[in-house]
Computed example of a mutant assay.
Amino acid sequence: MKRAFNYIMILVTLLSFGCTKNENKPCCEDIPLYYQMGAVPKMYNKMAVTPETQQAMSTEFKTKWDKAVADLELIGGRRLRSFDLNFISDNQLTITYSYTLTTGGLARAVVYYNYVVDNRGYLQISYASRDANGRVIAPGIFPIQEDYLERYKFRIDWIEDKIPGSTGKTAAYYKDGDATSYFYGSIIN
């Protein structure tokens, strides 16, 4: 596995020198995103998902998200705003949920996962632990966390097929076996 990872990293490094920037596409968009996304030293290690401002969310994801927003409001009036998916090592990632409190302040809850990405680019996460805030909001975020993100495998890819002419570094995670179910966000290195 380590040898395969090293070959992939060499390939990505070599190919990145041959990529040219285009006004409308990020560098190296021709390379499958799942080769480029992960913990450092990979090119992209974070994805920011903000469903309130993103127009092309899939119906299934949006339904689960809206249910989580409503359920979390029942826990002390908290309002779910966004989440970040952060790759922290070769086999661990975090999902950090951002939400507002009734006082207007912003709070965050971190959930830790083990993960694997198979040779087809499908991500599978398995729950490891959560911080204190994560324990408080767990019942509220169940629809998006346990009933969607933890339940399915997702193919990591660029979003361009759902948002024609999209610009910038935008990635999508497509549900295994159902490309009409996905979520997307800005990727960061």
Results as ranks from 00 to 15, higher is better:
residue 2 K to R: 12
residue 4 A to L: 06
residue 6 N to R: 12
residue 12 V to N: 13
residue 15 L to N: 08
residue 15 L to R: 14
residue 18 G to R: 14
residue 21 K to R: 15
residue 23 E to T: 06
residue 25 K to H: 14
residue 32 P to M: 14
residue 33 L to Q: 08
residue 36 Q to E: 15
residue 36 Q to I: 00
residue 41 P to N: 09
residue 41 P to V: 05
residue 49 V to R: 04
residue 51 P to F: 09
residue 53 T to R: 10
residue 53 T to F: 15
residue 55 Q to K: 09
residue 56 A to I: 01
residue 57 M to C: 09
residue 57 M to Y: 09
residue 60 E to P: 01
residue 61 F to R: 07
residue 63 T to Q: 14
residue 63 T to G: 11
residue 64 K to Q: 06
residue 64 K to N: 05
residue 68 A to Q: 06
residue 71 D to G: 02
residue 73 E to Q: 07
residue 75 I to S: 13
residue 77 G to I: 08
residue 78 R to I: 07
residue 79 R to K: 15
residue 84 D to W: 14
residue 87 F to G: 02
residue 88 I to R: 10
residue 93 L to A: 03
residue 104 G to M: 04
residue 109 A to S: 03
residue 112 Y to G: 10
residue 113 Y to D: 07
residue 113 Y to I: 03
residue 116 V to W: 03
residue 117 V to G: 09
residue 117 V to T: 14
residue 119 N to Y: 06
residue 120 R to S: 15
residue 136 V to G: 08
residue 136 V to T: 14
residue 137 I to Y: 03
residue 142 F to I: 02
residue 147 D to I: 06
residue 152 Y to F: 01
residue 154 F to E: 07
residue 155 R to T: 05
residue 157 D to G: 08
residue 157 D to P: 00
residue 158 W to Q: 06
residue 165 G to K: 00
residue 166 S to K: 14
residue 168 G to Y: 11
residue 175 K to I: 03
residue 176 D to I: 01
residue 184 Y to C: 01
residue 184 Y to N: 00
